[in-house]
Every structure is written in C-alpha cells, then in structure tokens.
Computed example of a mutant assay.
Amino acid sequence: MEAKTYPTMNARIVDLLKLSSDPIHAYAAKRIEELEAENERLRELLQYEEDRPRFDMDANGHLTRHTICKTGGSQMRKCCYVNCEREATTEGFVFARNPEGGTEIATAVQACDEHKNEPGFFEAEGSLT
C-alpha cells in the first residue's frame, strides 16, 4: 500500500507521537518536525531562485539580462539603494550576499542617476534608460 503524506497530517501525527512516553515515538516526532522545517526552507529557497533575475554573458563579454523577476517588469520603480526615494532610471545589478552562504550572487537592482555611478553598481546591457 502506498501512502501519501501531507504537512497538516504530519503535524497531527507529531502531536499524537508526543503523547507517548516511548523514546522511539519522541524520535519520530522530532524527525518529522526537522523534515518539515527543511522542506519549508527549501520551498523558500526555490521561490527565491524562481524570482531572482538571471544574467547571461553576450559575445562581447557583457552581462545582459536573461529574465526579469516577477516583481520587476518594464516599468521603473524607486531606486533600490537604502533611504533613496528618487525614481530609478537605470537597471543593473550589484553583487550581494548569497542567503545560502558561499559566493556572492548578481542581484538585479534599479538605481537613480546618482546611485548608478556607485562603484558596486553594474549597468545591464539593454537597460530601459
């Protein structure tokens, strides 16, 4: 017999297992909780990866936008720099800390005329300016 599993059922089973004083039940409850937490973390990471814009290298060695994140689009928004309220005029990227650790990752941002000149900002080829 094949059983299907569901997060809500897992939570109920954990509650039932915790009622027992059997160490095996305590272990099983703890393991289910760990696996559910790991699944949630992986779902969040997957969503982050799906939403993150990608950049490709063109024949001239320039980074170009490959896809646009779901929250982006063709309209400019406010400048992404902290405490800046100006309208963004340029799309590009900065290298930001990877939430999973390791190397930094190219992260799409939009900058105003002042912040597009920051040393860590790289304008994307085909920007909407």
Rank of each mutant, 00 (worst) to 15 (best):
A3F: 12
K4T: 15
Y6C: 01
T8I: 08
R12Q: 09
V14W: 11
V14S: 11
L17D: 10
A26R: 08
A28L: 13
I32M: 07
E34M: 11
L35M: 15
A37M: 02
E38R: 14
N39P: 05
E44S: 01
L46N: 06
Q47P: 00
E49A: 14
D51S: 13
R52H: 13
F55E: 04
D56H: 09
D56F: 05
M57G: 01
H62I: 02
L63T: 04
H66T: 13
C69T: 06
K70I: 08
T71C: 06
M76L: 09
K78F: 04
C80V: 01
V82Y: 06
V82D: 11
R86W: 02
A88W: 03
T89F: 06
T90M: 09
E91P: 01
E91R: 06
G92N: 11
F93P: 07
A96I: 07
E100Y: 01
T103R: 13
I105G: 00
I105E: 05
T107I: 10
A108V: 02
A108I: 00
C112S: 09
E114H: 15
N117T: 13
N117W: 05
P119K: 15
G120Q: 15
G120Y: 09
G120C: 10
F121L: 12
F121D: 07
G126I: 07
L128G: 03
T129R: 15
